[in-house]
Design a protein around this nucleic acid. Structure first.
Lengths: 151, 151
DNA sequence: TATCGAATTTTGCTCATAGCAAATAATTCA
DNA sequence: TGAATTATTTGCTATGAGCAAAATTCGATA
């Protein structure tokens, strides 16, 4: 194993992810604002996608937030009429959370914008680099997930 | 130009950056906690590096935060004895912010850890993929910065 | 040189974000 | 049935962050 202190690749990667993090945060903040959403609401809607995820707790786990926090985020989305909340008749402890008509509509537009941004970004990069970029980042993501899991 | 609605590369990239963002945030949060720092303090120290950046306002701009917020972040770092703050004799309006001895020491350890994590991540990825990963991500970062600048 | 305007930091206030613990309601199991 | 468990919500509290005003200093100009 080489000396970690002077490993130039690891140093470069560290620098890249640090800067990417800041820039991606900025990107999401701007997009959320365009749609009149808070960042948490944005994340929640995008994570929700079109699939119906049953309960509060499940979404909270996926978003890495406490259930109580999630209650209030969904409060906001219900107030904005993007989501509806009703008692699950199979298990009356659960709240069945679903997208409203306006909800699916905005998620559609929002995903289109989000993808559009990445299309613009890809346009700035040489075509031959697209596939390597995707595979490289897929590897990076899975390695990162592994690192987080083992901590 | 192809149809953005169904562009599979842009869709994949969108998904990847969305997930990477969440995971990188988590990674930074854990590392900051290990060192008894808040995330803002962590970012500030890492951005500061070993170089001496003169004033409050300059750091605030780099960190994309308001000067008043920065004042309090540096308050914390001064309280933890990682930084010192003194009036700039050239322009007495400025506060000259510098790392203390313990500050340089912790920044060194912290950078080493940060790089170490990325070394662990690289270890999970095939050697031949390292260089492509770095170049691809460099392109991604510059394209992303360009997108943000033009918004 | 005296004064007015601009720049830098700090402080007080306010609001958003987020978790914890208690309360409530519903289910499961002994 | 009754005790333990699970899901959600509510009250409280702490932290994160910006805005506006105050204090200090600098610079330019009349």
């Amino acid at each position: 194993m080489t000396n970690p202190k002077t490993d130039p690749e690891a140093t470069q990667l560290a620098d890249l992810t640090f800067k990417l993090l800041a820039n991606c945060q900025e990107k999401e903040a701007r997009l959320a604002e365009q749609y009149g959403l808070t960042q948490a609401e944005f994340r929640c809607l995008r994570l929700f996608g079109t699939k119906e995820i049953s309960n509060n707790k499940h979404i909270a786990e996926r978003m890495n937030l406490s259930p109580s926090r999630l209650t209030r985020i969904i409060d906001g989305l219900v107030k904005k009429a993007y989501m509806t909340r009703e008692i699950d008749s199979d298990d009356r402890r659960n709240m069945r959370v679903t997208l409203s008509k306006q909800g699916t509509e905005i998620v559609g537009r929002l995903n289109k914008s989000y993808i559009g941004i990445h299309k613009e970004i890809l346009d700035e990069i040489d075509d031959t680099q697209h596939a390597p970029l995707i595979t490289a980042m897929t590897h990076l993501l899975s390695a990162l997930e592994k690192w987080i899991a083992k901590t």
